[in-house]
């Protein structure tokens, strides 16, 4: 499992991933609230997969 706070460089990478994920959720939710919810589920699943890799 990947530790997002293992080092400063890893924490910075995690921040970039969170920024991209948040931007995707915001972009989807502007069109439709439920699209935002669906993208949020996908983003959290992808984030979980990235952390478990």
């Amino acid at each position: 499992m990947r530790n997002p706070l293992r080092s400063e460089a890893e924490a910075f990478r995690f921040l970039v991933v969170v920024v991209v994920g948040a931007a995707l959720i915001v972009a989807a939710s502007y069109g439709n609230t439920w699209a935002g919810v669906a993208v949020a589920v996908l983003v959290f699943a992808a984030l979980g997969r990235w952390l478990m890799r």
Partner: peptide
């Protein structure tokens, strides 16, 4: 640096 990035991650969630 780890703490500062954590604070920024939390700001993204809050914002």
């Amino acid at each position: 640096g780890i703490y500062w990035h954590f604070v920024d991650v939390m700001w993204i969630v809050v914002f």
